[in-house]
């Protein structure tokens, strides 16, 4: 389909209206704990996230884009998300992504998933299906997912720490080769058996997400 390269830019744009702006990907909790305090520590945080939660999410997105059964993938995502708070977040964002995807690249597969999971499927799966509907490849979906996994925390860190936005963007630029690599690994994994999809996780992200969800005062929803 023509326009696919630009469609990837539309999907991966931080302004794509799918709710991501209200989430920090764990950055708010890490900032509060003093683990992320400048560009260097933000880079370390994003790298850790990219190779763990990022890889797992990117593989789910690639598998959805490749045409695997989204409901089976949704179960696989639950199995890979031990934290109830993060499951809620993933489904909330999946529902928001679904709304945006159906408005931009409607297709029967999105309609079917929306009907089967009215409260939201895991976001990477909806993203993968949106990519598929936009005529994009599994690799495109994995790229979009991996990138979003690090761009979310970087944007949040700018707001939370008043970090120099040029430094935060440079963090993302430095991580680009690794993000490409994660996307490639995600696609390879998605070509195999569903049960063998990556299950990499960052326990500290899971633990802090649970605590963060109970904070009475916070800037980000997660």
């Amino acid at each position: 389909m023509s326009g696919a390269a630009a469609a990837l830019l539309v999907l991966a744009d931080g302004r794509f209206p799918a709710g991501g702006h209200a989430h920090s990907g764990g950055a708010e909790a890490a900032v509060k704990a003093g683990r992320v305090k400048d560009a260097a520590s933000l880079g370390a945080f994003c790298r850790g996230r990219l190779h763990t939660a990022g890889l797992t999410a990117a593989a789910l997105a690639a598998a959805a884009a490749a045409g695997h059964d989204p409901l089976a993938l949704d179960e696989a995502a639950d199995a890979r998300t031990p934290s109830p708070a993060l499951r809620r977040t993933a489904r909330k964002l999946g529902r928001q992504m679904m709304r945006a995807a159906r408005a931009t690249w409607p297709c029967p597969e999105l309609d079917a998933l929306a009907a089967a999971r009215p409260r939201g499927a895991h976001q990477p799966i909806v993203l993968g299906l949106a990519a598929r509907s936009a005529g994009l490849t599994p690799l495109d979906a994995a790229h979009a997912c991996a990138y979003e996994n690090i761009s979310g925390p970087a944007t949040a860190a700018v707001r939370l720490l008043s970090l120099d936005p040029f430094d935060a963007t440079a963090v993302l630029a430095r991580l680009a080769p690794e993000a490409d690599d994660v996307a490639r690994r995600a696609v390879e994994a998605a070509e195999g058996d569903l049960a063998d999809l990556p299950a990499a996780s960052a326990p500290l992200l899971d633990i802090t997400a649970e605590a963060h969800a109970t904070w009475p005062v916070r800037l980000f929803a997660s």
Binding site: P17, A18, H21, A22, H23, Q96, R99, A100, R159, F220
Partner: peptide, 15 residues
């Protein structure tokens, strides 16, 4: 919850 950006939630990303 608006992620530090209340105007985004009512204008740019209303999801």
């Amino acid at each position: 919850e608006t992620g530090a950006c209340p105007h985004t939630a009512i204008r740019d990303d209303i999801s």
